[in-house]
Amino acid sequence: MKLHRIKALLVKYFYISINRVDRLFDVVYWPILDVLLWGFASAFIEQVSDFNLLSMALGGVILWIFVWRSSQDIAVFVLEDFWSRNLYHLFSSPVKLSEHIVSIIIWGLVRAIVSFIFLSLISILLYQFNILTISPLFIAAAVALLLLFGWTMGIFITSFILRFGQRIQVLAWSVVWIIQPFSCIFYPLSALPPWAAAIAKVLPTTHVFEGLRSILFGTGQGNLLYAFGITIVLLVGVSFLLAQSFKAAKRKGMLARGGD
């Protein structure tokens, strides 16, 4: 990997972001809507019961942003190169696939941090909820784990896009939301029916949000070590899948056709 090529791609994403309002917009728009929705709903539930949903819901929404941004950004930036038929120029240049993915990961991380800062400030201003008052060590571990899992998902989706082209682009937006109900962000693992709990237990995200509940209420059953372990295994697996898909894309001539 060469640093100057990663820098060049970061410059490209910067230009895309400043030239396209929608790419700036999605860093704050949807996350803010989520915070408003869950913040108001939690405030109402607290009025009619004694249950402190606010910290769990807002903590969940703010942390989930790392999975969302990191997974979706990888897939959408790759798709953008498909849409603009830019893979031809990109991969006839010295750019390696790994440099391409690393640059997207870095840019996605920047966008996730911007979203995180926005949401944290709004939570403090509107609901007097400061996520950083929760154990900083736990938050750091949770963010790292959720980012790793998000990248795993993003690489997984990208592998499929490279293999099957733009016809499966809907995955870029949908996969992360398929995982969300099983990640126990807004409810405990114990609230799920057995079949859903079985799926949830496998997901590393569940263990992060169970860990959050454990800190907030002392009731969670998260295992962060397991979560890190399974995420690393998945990340290695999808990286291998991505390399194979890239080869398949070259065999099919997809890079030279613009992914059609």
Binding site: K12, I16, N19, S84, N86, H89
Partner: peptide, 12 residues
């Protein structure tokens, strides 16, 4: 047949 990134300017 393959334009450069279309949302970027020529110089960018």
């Amino acid at each position: 047949y393959f334009p450069l990134t279309d949302v970027l300017t020529i110089r960018q």
